[in-house]
């Protein structure tokens, strides 16, 4: 009986190996089922999800106006100290002082893309862009100013 069991084992072993080889051979002859994306050759056609958290950006409209009031909620919400807001005081025509944002400093090199700042923003001034190619040759370039020069607060945003 020993020889029968032995032959059965050999048969089972060969069968299991052939089943596996069959699967490998299937993909060898069915190239269309291979789903590899050829990045960076497919850069032109690459579609990123709209919610993908790549970096923090501040939206400006055509009049160069943004919705950031300088309330520092994002600065407080950030766990890494990525955001630093520098405020200034504008003087309105009536002679009143009004707080406004001077510089919105964003340290991309410290950012972990957690999205807590966007969630904390009461006026939806900042959002996450879905860009992801952040490499630069100079580290200083990673510290960004998000509000454009001479931009103003949108009317009606408090």
């Amino acid at each position: 009986m020993f020889i029968v069991d032995y032959l059965k084992d050999v048969y089972g072993a060969m069968k299991s190996l052939l089943i596996g080889m069959n699967r490998t051979g299937y993909y060898f002859t069915h190239h269309k089922e291979i789903i590899t994306e050829q990045y960076p050759d497919n850069r032109d056609t690459l579609v990123m999800a709209d919610r993908f958290r790549g970096e923090v950006v501040m939206a400006h409209d055509e009049n160069n106006e943004h919705a950031c009031t300088g309330c520092s909620a994002c600065e407080l919400a950030c766990p890494n100290g990525t955001i630093k807001i520098i405020n200034k005081f504008d003087i309105s025509p009536e002679g009143k002082k009004k707080k406004a944002i001077d510089t919105f400093v964003y340290h991309l090199e410290l950012c972990t893309m957690c999205g807590l700042c966007v969630e904390a923003c009461p006026t939806a001034a900042i959002n996450m862009a879905n860009t992801f190619e952040h490499s630069v040759f100079n580290r200083g370039l990673l510290t960004k100013r998000l509000n454009k020069p001479d931009s103003k607060l949108k009317a009606g945003v408090e």
């Binding site: 999800a49 919610r51 993908f52 958290r53 972990t112 893309m113 957690c114 999205g115 807590l116 969630e119 996450m128």
Partner: peptide, 22 residues
């Protein structure tokens, strides 16, 4: 891909907030 579309990230999702989801 499902995670990326709904949560905004592929691996470190950070989709949970106290009280629900983001």
């Amino acid at each position: 891909d499902i995670m990326e579309e709904t949560c905004g990230a592929r691996l470190t999702m950070n989709y949970m907030v106290p009280g629900g989801v983001m």
